[in-house]
Design a protein around this nucleic acid. Sequence first.
DNA 1: AAGTTATATAATATATAATTTATATAACTG
DNA 2: CAGTTATATAAATTATATATTATATAACTT
Lengths: 107, 107
Amino acid sequence: MANLDAAFSALADPTRRAILARLALGEATVMELVEPFDMTQPAISRHLKVLEGAGLIVRRIEGTKRPCRLAPTAVAEIDQWLGMLRRALETNYDRLDDVLAAMKPEQ
Amino acid sequence: MANLDAAFSALADPTRRAILARLALGEATVMELVEPFDMTQPAISRHLKVLEGAGLIVRRIEGTKRPCRLAPTAVAEIDQWLGMLRRALETNYDRLDDVLAAMKPEQ
DNA sequence: AAGTTATATAATATATAATTTATATAACTG
DNA sequence: CAGTTATATAAATTATATATTATATAACTT
């Protein structure tokens, strides 16, 4: 699943996660996204390209501006994949002793 | 949040996701994890180290073997962070027109 | 039309990641 | 204890990613 590669990879960067957190509050233009960061505009443009490529954001064209907003697709895909792990963890959670034993490595 | 960096970064690799999917079925040793992949043992060892560093797996010592299993911590952290995006998307979902407009980029 | 604003792209430097081969270590096996 | 098995580490290579500066483009403003 190449999409998951791109999505997880995009989320691995703290700047990109901060951008998404900002977009969770609502649409923003590129310059609005540049402002809070100590980083050049081209750097943010690139991050946005990565986020768009991963399906995490979408962009409109509005005059010379390109307002960005969150896109649902990649998040749904990730949720679905993580669900597999979540279920496995919940299932194995009965065997608490095993879990505890595993988590206390006998150095 | 450096943990999220490590966790998402670990999940960005398809081999590592496949390892996690295998571990969702239950504990496995390093050699058991090497077997299905067309990759050397050291390469898998490194992937396991990354997964362990990200808090996605834990390892026991059992003689010369190091059985691996899923760890709950990182998954919970990721779920929590993604929850923020999920909620934002759900909230904005009323404004369906906006969403549709945003998803149909006027090339 | 000239200047400005918003954004993108290119070139480049630097850093980080993934994989392989070779080798080390430590625990089992006979 | 010698050989084998399970795993880890190191060195080297190759590939990718990130950020910067410089520059391009396209739409607004006057």
